[in-house]
Design a protein around this nucleic acid. Structure first.
Lengths: 125, 125
DNA sequence: TTTGCAATCGCAACATTGTTGCAATTAATT
DNA sequence: AATTAATTGCAACAATGTTGCGATTGCAAA
């Protein structure tokens, strides 16, 4: 097992995500940590934060990968909630309390779900 | 308004998508049309097919953009159905008949939904 | 059938996003 | 303070998508 080490880059990036109301992309994180560390380091820190269950990945409807704080994850990720993607301000928010229901027709085996609504967020509507 | 023109590239690409049971990525389309046309042309043809309501875009859970045939779209796209993404064979399928239900908590204005389940498809399970 | 024009295409060049190898640095333990 | 493995920066690369522009081509009108 690899030992976890705390570094400035990791701390700053995790704080940034934890204090953000919306999910952040790699590009946004880079813009908000000017000069903190190398571009590659951000990728590697994000990977580690996901391994440690502190952050989860959200793929937006346009294919852009974003990262959000985990509220209830420890050893394994559990994200059966809806994400909301604002078409105007491009923010992506986790709607932690909403769980959708559906009935599957055939013999599919479901492991994960990824549900994103897009439209206007409360700030933009 | 721009006049629509039918070309070999457009016809072949549309046929390919229409005859496929699963959604196809740009890379897959390129592999299945070796020498037909330039890489850039595929991008532009796909854009036109979407404008004409013949094809729609599906973003997979891993962020890969795929294209699928439209069954019931004409002037505007209407895709409130679930997509299934197989973790083994990487196929993406439209489950046209399944409509999920959910109750939204706050004052969000929903325009589109993007719902993808991942797991094992009937062939792989 | 020929002509004219706009739509489409190919090519090159560029932008963005993400990955990898490796040497240098550094956190944490002894 | 010395040791060791985790982390970082850098350079190089790969994949994916975009743009400008001159050349080609579908198609409608003459």
């Amino acid at each position: 097992m690899k030992a976890v080490r705390s570094t400035t880059a990791k701390f700053e990036i995790q704080s940034l995500i934890a204090n953000s109301a919306v999910a952040l992309s790699h590009t946004e994180i880079q813009a908000n940590t000017k000069g903190l560390c190398n571009r590659v380091t951000i990728y590697r820190v994000l990977e580690r934060l996901m391994d440690e269950g502190l952050v989860h990945k959200v793929v937006n409807v346009d294919g852009v990968v974003k990262y959000a704080n985990c509220h209830t994850c420890s050893t394994k990720h559990n994200h059966n909630h809806i994400h909301f993607s604002c078409q105007k301000c491009k923010s992506v928010t986790c709607l932690d309390d909403v769980e959708p229901t559906f009935k599957l027709p055939k013999k599919y085996k479901v492991n994960e779900m990824n549900f994103t609504l897009s439209g206007l967020c409360p700030q933009c509507s």
